[in-house]
Design a binder for these strands. Sequence first.
DNA 1: AGCCTTTGACCAGCG
DNA 2: TCGCTGGTCAAAGGC
Length: 391
Amino acid sequence: MEEQILASSSSSAAAATQHVQPTCDSSGSSAAAGARYKLVAPAELPISRSACITIPPGLSPPLLEPPILLSDVKAEPSPTTGSLIKPQAIHASVASSTFSATALCSNAFDDTPSSSFEFRPYPRSNMAPAELNHQRSEPFLQIQGEEQTVSFNSSTSVKSEMVGASNELSLSLPVHAAASVTTAPADVDVVELNQIGNPNSGIQLGQSDQKGGGTSVPSDDGYNWRKYGLKHVKGSEFPRSYFKCTHPDCAVKKKIERSHDGQIAEIIYKGSHVHPRPQPRRRYTSANNIMSGQEERSDKVSSLTGGDGKSGMHILANQSDFRDIVVGFSTMCLAKKTHIFTNRHVVAYSFHQQHRENPIKVSFGSIIFIVCTAFSNYQGRSQEILEGAAE
DNA sequence: AGCCTTTGACCAGCG
DNA sequence: TCGCTGGTCAAAGGC
Ligand SMILES: [Zn+2]
């Protein structure tokens, strides 16, 4: 059941750590020490479930490997915690929900420019164009040491952690919002996050980690992983599983904490893949193509490109600041996922509506996170918007 | 046969 | 230096 968006990303960057947490609380337990960014969004989102997305510059998508190029981030001293960053925020709201994206960090990434970018949404359900409402809220980002906490709308908060040079960012969302983010760098990567959330709907990470032998796709992010450890981390309610990318030359690792239900509580990615994403079943099309070869995708694509979606894109498009940013992220709600991709060239997001009771936290080294909240209005609907921007 | 998970042991960093 | 903690190793076994 999950749709996926794949983006190819270049992998150039140094390793970054990405963190995703579905159910998070802002308090972030796992934040490592480091700079902290707090993003606070005005609590005014009328919508109980709105999602705000903040993308710090320099983020590398968790799911996506390659680092993302982000535009600079602006940081301003914040009264409370240090520097306050006000990233440009992009807000797109769909239906009743609102997404805002902000770029925060500024790591310079090498980007692999346009190389290949693939976007492969897997539409599972029908996608209907959704009406978008645009709301804007501007998050504030505060940086404290290496941990970043972002809070969006009243209900969401994201926490990110950055670790040393490599950055680790973790986001935590408040209860009502659930978000999953995936970012795709210019190159293609796939981003997928998982869901979390409701006990009922939670997405379960691939069946993977549990069984031996089988393929394991812990979080179904399109890469192949090998589990090499399991540890019960103090402070974490759930055991943490350690995975390594199985690609011979790739050192990317990821840590996943999942609940007994199999829902992911937190995902932390470290490093950037130095290889293209393995095609699970099908290969993706050429780099430039946005869509993967799958038929489904194509359908979606067209739909994405469609008009309604634009409004959402609009927002993004309007952000000139982001033009250099290549970010891909996806969010998933419960059973369904919502993906958003931002690429210099392409920006797309989709959601399949679902309510998310639980937020997801994602952190990357570079920084990126996405928050997705459930949209009450959207139940049953899914939407995707795709836009290509000329470079 | 190959790849993966499981699992306890080992290692390194830190207070 | 010791103990704790998180991360990794590697043998064993499963599919
Ligand atoms: Zn890899």
